[in-house]
Simulated assay, not measured.
Amino acid sequence: MADDKIATTISRIRPLGGHIRVGFENNLFTVNGSLASSDADLVRDTVSALQCLELRP
Rank of each mutant, 00 (worst) to 15 (best):
M1A: 12
M1Y: 09
M1R: 12
A2D: 04
A2N: 06
A2F: 03
A2P: 07
A2I: 03
D3S: 13
D3A: 14
D3I: 13
D3R: 09
K5H: 10
I6Q: 02
I6V: 11
I6N: 01
A7P: 01
A7N: 00
T8W: 01
T9F: 05
T9P: 03
I10Y: 03
S11C: 06
S11V: 06
S11K: 13
S11F: 06
R12V: 12
R12Y: 12
I13P: 00
I13Q: 03
R14L: 08
R14F: 04
P15R: 08
L16W: 12
L16S: 13
L16I: 09
G17V: 04
G17T: 05
G18D: 03
G18L: 05
H19M: 14
H19L: 14
H19P: 03
H19T: 14
H19C: 13
I20K: 00
R21C: 09
G23N: 07
G23P: 05
G23W: 07
G23M: 13
F24M: 15
F24V: 10
N26T: 15
N26R: 13
N26L: 15
N27I: 07
N27D: 06
N27A: 10
N27H: 05
L28R: 07
L28T: 00
F29T: 15
F29L: 15
T30R: 15
T30I: 10
N32A: 11
G33M: 02
S34D: 15
S34I: 13
L35E: 12
L35P: 02
A36M: 08
S37V: 11
S37M: 05
D39P: 08
D39T: 15
A40N: 10
D41K: 03
D41P: 00
L42K: 01
L42P: 00
V43L: 10
R44M: 09
R44S: 08
D45C: 13
D45M: 04
D45A: 11
T46E: 05
T46F: 04
V47M: 04
V47C: 01
S48R: 10
A49H: 04
A49V: 01
L50S: 05
Q51I: 07
Q51V: 09
Q51W: 11
C52D: 14
L53Y: 02
L53Q: 03
E54M: 11
E54N: 15
L55E: 10
L55S: 06
R56I: 03
R56P: 03
P57Y: 13
P57D: 08
